[in-house]
Amino acid sequence: MILPRLASPNLAFALVALGVLLLLAGSYYGLFVSPQERYMGDVQRIMYVHVPSAWNAMLLFTLAMGCALAYLWRGGWGWDAHHEALLEGAAVLSFLLCVQGSIWAKPTWGVWWDWDPRLTTTAVMLLALLGILALRSAVDDPEKRATWSAVATIIAFVDVPIVYFSVRWWNSLHQMQSSPETVSAPFIVPLRLNAFGVLALMGGLALLRARVAARRTAKELGPALPPMPAGAALEA
């Protein structure tokens, strides 16, 4: 388990490079190899970025929630650093998700936005993430910041399963989740490439971002204590 500790930058950069490669391959396949959709034509291709954004936004939020729980339960700045990094990643993806969805909605549904349960709960997810990040930036004491935002993340996480199930629980304008049975084979390839591409890219960036967070926290906590012997446990 890497998250209680900081990842080496080499690993993070390797993940970023892998993500870029996968996204290049997925984008090429999605734009030039996959055929047009029967009714939607080229517009459907936005699915290749929209769906990976959705999956990874929810995944990163879930991981952030795990870090928040681990911080409260076990302590350790590693959890807090990754909590912060994953929250930001989830916020970026949620924002992209809403924008991409809007761009897809206009030509197909005929509107940019409507207060459909899926759209509304997704907007709540974005606002919750931004709210927690605002809370973090407003609290100066590292321990209070870590503790309070961890509590906020755990409570806000309730929205994630609601986003997922909203299309099943309620009437909605948004369609239900697709599955390999409802999507033609040539559409699945770019979807998977981009999904793993976004995962690797955001994962790598989050690992790097956690290092930045750890550095800042170290500065806030004041001059370092005498250096620990190599290999010593990093959590007290």
Binding site: Y71, G75, D80, T147, A214, A218, L225, E235, A236
Partner: peptide
């Protein structure tokens, strides 16, 4: 780069 020290206190209030 090392994680900041000291680590947060392991206290029951947080749990």
């Amino acid at each position: 780069l090392r994680l900041p020290t000291p680590a947060p206190r392991r206290n029951n209030a947080r749990r």
